[in-house]
């Protein structure tokens, strides 16, 4: 018969108390765990702040890019209108006008000299305008 069964004292109660050195070690371990835990929390908080700053920066950048895109879209619309207007009105007018001047120059050599200033070597004015119109259409 074991003595502990009769006296009602458990083994745990009868376990020898931790020595003073072990208590000191446990306390030191607890303190270093708490320090580590606090440092971990601080690191996570710092990361959150860093990410918040990054998010604000990215949001500003996205807004700036959107504003720039809106301005570009407006400019593109205006330039498309200008090119369409040029193709629809100016190109036919210029073709007709230069065609008539070319015809006049055939019968008036002195005017042909004036027109020659606007010709590239081996190219007629109409060919030049056709090139401009073609470039605008592209």
């Amino acid at each position: 018969m074991m003595p502990s069964e009769h006296s009602g004292i458990s083994l745990r109660d009868t376990a020898p108390p931790p020595s003073l050195g072990a208590v000191g070690e446990l306390e030191a371990l607890r303190r270093s765990f708490e320090t580590l835990h606090r440092r971990f929390q601080l690191s996570v908080a710092a990361l959150i702040l860093l990410l918040a700053a990054l998010n604000v920066y990215l949001l500003n950048q996205v807004r700036t890019v959107h504003r720039r895109a809106a301005v570009l879209a407006q400019q593109i619309t205006e330039m498309r209108q200008a090119v369409a207007n040029y193709e629809a009105k100016s190109v036919p007018w210029m073709d007709k006008f230069s065609g008539q001047l070319e015809g006049f120059a055939k019968t008036h050599p002195d005017f042909a000299q004036v027109l020659d200033r606007y010709r590239r070597p081996g190219e007629t004015n109409q060919a030049q305008r056709a090139k401009a119109g073609g470039a605008a259409r592209r």
Binding site: L72, Q75, I76, M79, R80, A82, V83, Y86, S90, M94, F97, S98, L101, L115, Y118, N125, Q128, R129, A132, A135, A136, R138
Partner: peptide, 21 residues
């Protein structure tokens, strides 16, 4: 926009030539 700007510049150049003519 750059492509269209090139077209507009070319159109302006030829318009100026015809105006001078």
């Amino acid at each position: 926009a750059a492509h269209l700007q090139a077209q507009v510049n070319l159109a302006n150049r030829y318009t100026a030539i015809v105006e001078a003519m």
